[in-house]
Amino acid sequence: MVSPFAVQVPAAAGSELLVARDVAFGYGSEPDVLQGVSLSVRAGEMLALFGPNGAGKSTLLRILGGLLVPQRGEVRVLGQAVGALASTERARAIARMPQGLDAWPDMRVGDLIWSGRYCHQPKRSWRNAFLPTQVTRADAQAVEHAMQATDTFSWRERSVRELSGGERERVLLARALAQDSPVLLADEPTRSLDPGHQLEAFGLLREQAQAGRAVLVVTHDWNLASQFADRLVCLAQGRVVAEGTPGEVLRAKVLEPIYGAHLFFGDLPRSAGGSTPFVLPWQDRE
């Protein structure tokens, strides 16, 4: 299925939409959370970022999204420095699906998804201050397609607080899709989803890449990443320790030094030919 989203990517397909160069960051008590990370995501590409707990994935995602300023290095989106963009310009360029929210607001699901369109709506000035917010056809279409794609349309009148963890993740994904940005960052989008919805969510993100977006997914699920992502990047102790296709990265010599020896590696044949590597956490018990 071709995505219904009209992606307006100013660069040619295959060009680098999101680039991080030599990014370093630390907090007061942890000065070396990221130590010179470089990566790029191209238009039409889906990149999966993984690594052990505390590797710096969420911090890197915040920096890529322009929510944290790196102490060294730079991040460019669509050729422009993220830090130089105004807040709405940045949101139009980069959509982000967070792991969860600090607090789930007592808000209609429909309204939460609509908030993804905030960056596309006319900026408030004294001329339009007391007029109702204008909803364009593009806004309505983006919200409608996001609801349809994530199967959240029937919940639009429910309060977000009434939803289960998995349902909330689908709503956050719908909001990120409604944002309709050329770069999409997703932080563990399948954490609370059942296997069926995990496949759907990754399939949806894959569609976004096929429609011309640059998609970066943080995940702990190697097997979903192996099936859907074009490239995998492994982050450990604040550095990129492996980068390549699933076949290159999901190998014992790469993962066992990072995760230990309790892993089982294999390959599953694809119906279209070739094979997909898989990895299972495995401890042989008698």
């Binding site: 709405t88 949101a91 139009r92 982000r96 600090d102 607001p105 993804g116 960056c119 201050a129």
Partner: peptide, 28 residues
Amino acid sequence: ACVIPFVARELDMLEAGEEDAAALGVNL
């Protein structure tokens, strides 16, 4: 009261967290 149109919707979005509102384009 003149600030209402410039902050009301943004305060609604802020309910879910500052970082989330910033990612949606709110000028915190």
